[in-house]
Design a binder for these strands. Structure first.
Length: 356
DNA sequence: AATAGCCTCAACCGCCTTGAT
DNA sequence: CATCAAGGCGGTTGAGGCTAT
């Protein structure tokens, strides 16, 4: 039996949404919530497929969407996350508040991808094409790309583990009584037979012992006098790059101020289940929450931010997020990202012509 | 001013995953 | 366990706007 269409195609409108349709959809959702998307169009008086309504809402009408140019920090975050996650736009979007996966995907395809390619960086692998970047970073590219590849493997495996654990935890939570959970929210079962559980314990150890990639990108630092990139990741920039960053920063003045750090509240509101599980951590009984959550998301923040989110993570353990394990990043990764971002920045129209 | 080519991005399509039965 | 409905996701398309000639 073939797959049934998501909705009856006959008589349904396609193409761009009119202001009237937007108004209807907004009014309906504001009053009733979206409920079942399939049933929504008829209830809201729209001649649209439910899927189309959902897309319109999530990508355009939702009130918590930020539109317009991407800030410098957002660009940098997208590049970083894409290097680690690949084309997993929804996962990337969970780390960019107020941006939709569709918007990020479009921005990547129309801007960032081209810019990287133009610079001689393969936008898929984030490695130098023909083994050369430019004189600033080319001679180090082999080492740093190997490092990055290692990082990506770690991160990819870790994300999978997180997702598995989140699912498993969800099932456990559903099977347990709420009172039990609330009685000892910070004191999980002493042991579990779950392979994920053991795996993640091992992971935690590995993070410390082996300096996992999530750790290597942690550069907690002060905000004082930091450039845009530094504000975000703590990576340092050379003096020559500083001027370029400042110029780019000036171009985007006003935009990026909106998006400096994710607040605890924003983190808790992230869409991804696994992210919510590990970062939101309100009901989590899993003892390893702190370092697991801190690993990936932490790389997006500077010291103040880590502090902020650790308030949350601390609730699920002994109150001390394991930030001590997130050692300062290694020089190779630093140089890699400095090289890439300085080149990305130099590719801006306002900058000097392409190096290639 | 006309038009061809390029670029952007909203929207669609089809596949995959998840949850209910 | 199998099946189905619904939602979610990533890839792709094409209309409209912009730029160059």
């Amino acid at each position: 039996m073939g797959r049934s269409p998501c909705c009856e195609k006959i008589g349904l409108k396609k193409g761009p949404w009119t202001p009237e349709e937007d108004e209807k959809l907004l009014a309906y959702i504001e009053e009733n919530g979206h409920g079942s998307w399939r049933a929504l169009p008829s209830k809201a008086g729209l001649q649209r497929c439910g899927k189309s309504c959902r897309l319109r809402w999530t990508n355009y009408l939702r009130p918590d969407i930020k539109r317009g140019k991407f800030s410098l920090q957002e660009e940098q975050t997208i590049i970083q996350l894409h290097a680690l996650l690949g084309n997993r736009w929804s996962a990337i979007a969970t780390h960019l508040p107020k941006r939709t996966d569709n918007e990020i995907k479009n921005y990547w395809n129309t801007h960032l991808k081209k810019r990287l390619a133009k610079m001689g960086i393969d936008p898929v692998t984030h490695k130098a094409i023909n083994g050369t970047l430019n004189s600033a970073a080319g001679d180090k590219s082999a080492k740093v790309t190997a490092s990055l590849s290692h990082m990506a493997q770690w991160e990819s495996a870790r994300l999978e583990a997180e997702a598995r654990l989140a699912r498993e935890s969800k099932m456990r939570t559903a099977a347990s009584t709420p009172s039990k959970l609330h009685a000892q929210p910070t004191n999980p079962p002493a042991s579990t037979s779950s392979p994920c559980f053991h795996m993640l314990h091992a992971w935690q150890g590995a993070k410390i012992d082996l300096e996992s990639p999530t750790s290597t990108l942690m550069f907690p630092g002060s905000n004082a006098g930091m450039l845009p990139f530094s504000r975000n990741t703590g990576l340092e920039l050379s003096e020559s790059n500083s001027a370029m960053w400042q110029q780019r920063s000036d171009e985007l003045e006003g935009e990026e101020s909106e998006w400096k750090f994710m607040s605890k509240q924003q983190l808790q509101g992230l869409g991804s289940e696994e992210t919510e599980h590990f970062i939101g951590c309100g009901e989590s009984w899993f003892p390893g929450t702190t370092s697991i959550g801190a690993g990936f998301t932490g790389m997006l923040f500077d010291g103040s931010n880590v502090h902020d989110t650790s308030e949350c993570w601390g609730e699920s353990s002994n109150g001390q997020a394991e930030q001590s394990s997130q050692v300062s990043g290694d020089e190779e990764s630093k140089n890699y990202w400095n090289g890439i971002f300085s080149m990305v920045n130099s590719e801006k129209p306002s900058q000097s012509p392409p190096l290639l």
